[in-house]
């Protein structure tokens, strides 16, 4: 039978077993280990007593504090809602011009809108609202639809080319693909538009015949974009001579636009954002342009 031997370094006895040269000391478990073990069990038992923890058939021990996670959550939501209701009422009632008179409310709107914009709008319009190819820049002075609070509110509510029953619709027809314009006519009208506008033609002065283009424009484009090519904010037709381009102002992008048409999509936010949230975003978008103007001055 195994006989323990003394370990010279520690002074403790071994258990007397040996496995492939490994021995074990029979050291007692240190008091601190017992104390911590018992302590952790006591902490656990306290948890069991005060909080819901153990299942009993088809229910569970409620704990003497009767904590209910769901009730806590409802309470927290109500607290925040109570805090918000006053601010929300103020925001609902105010116009942008009124808002800039109230710096406190303005900073509240800015910080609320910042989050709403980042989480909902930034994916298309960019973190700074400066847009992307195919998605309008919201910080400049060019507007497809009028820069007006009610108009912006409506766009946010119903979207553009969306499935909302009242959605705004706006479409650039596929003049080339649908056979309405020949290649040369498209080139001519591009030359005309670029010449009328402030956009330089990308190195191709002989791209098309601007004079011929003016006739093409009058017949095909003016009905939406206007005789002066300044667009029409009632129907979402962009201004073509302001050097602001959603899909690019170089000749090949323009050719694409006229040949294949364009139909941008802005989702309706009615089902996702509350009216107050949409109002906050409207004010924010107005503010973005103003802030931008301030900078450029």
């Amino acid at each position: 039978m195994s006989v323990g031997e003394r370990d010279n370094h520690s002074g403790h006895m071994t258990t007397g077993h040996e496995w492939n040269g490994i021995k074990e000391l029979n050291t007692r478990v240190p008091r601190i280990v017992w104390a911590c073990l018992i302590g952790s069990v006591i902490i656990s038992v306290i948890m069991w007593v005060i909080w819901p923890t153990w299942p009993i058939w088809n229910t569970f021990t409620p704990g003497i504090l009767k904590t209910d996670e769901r009730a806590q959550l409802v309470q927290e939501i109500q607290q925040v809602a109570g805090k918000r209701s006053d601010i929300d009422q103020q925001i609902q009632a105010i116009t942008y011009d009124g808002l800039i008179e109230k710096p406190e409310l303005l900073s509240q709107v800015r910080s609320d809108a910042h989050l709403l914009f980042q989480d909902n709008c930034a994916a298309c319009h960019g973190v700074q609202g400066k847009g992307e190819i195919g998605f309008p820049n919201l910080t400049d002075s060019a507007w497809l639809w009028e820069r007006d609070e009610d108009v912006i509110m409506e766009t946010l509510k119903v979207g553009i080319n969306d499935q909302h029953p009242d959605t705004r619709t706006a479409e650039m027809l596929a003049f080339g693909r649908e056979g309405m314009l020949e290649r040369q006519a498209i080139k001519d009208v591009i030359a005309y538009v670029l010449k009328s506008g402030e956009t330089p033609i990308d190195g191709k002065m002989d791209y098309g015949n601007a004079e011929n283009g003016s006739l093409v424009f009058e017949e095909n484009c003016a009905s939406c974009h206007g005789e002066d090519a300044k667009g029409d904010t009632d129907i979402g037709a962009p201004n073509l001579i302001d050097n602001v381009w959603i899909y690019g102002g170089d000749t090949s992008s323009l050719f694409q636009t006229i040949w294949n048409g364009r139909k941008g999509h802005m989702p309706s936010w009615e089902g996702r954002l509350s009216e107050t949230e949409r109002k906050i975003l409207t004010l924010y978008v107005m503010d973005l342009e103003s802030a931008n103007k301030g900078k450029s001055k």
Binding site: D7, H9, T14, I22, E24, L25, N26, T27, R28
Partner: peptide, 16 residues
């Protein structure tokens, strides 16, 4: 323990 050439500190702790 093989590499250290030392016995296990405590068999009882191993059990716990």
């Amino acid at each position: 323990p093989k590499r250290a050439q030392r016995p296990i500190y405590s068999y009882r702790m191993s059990i716990i």
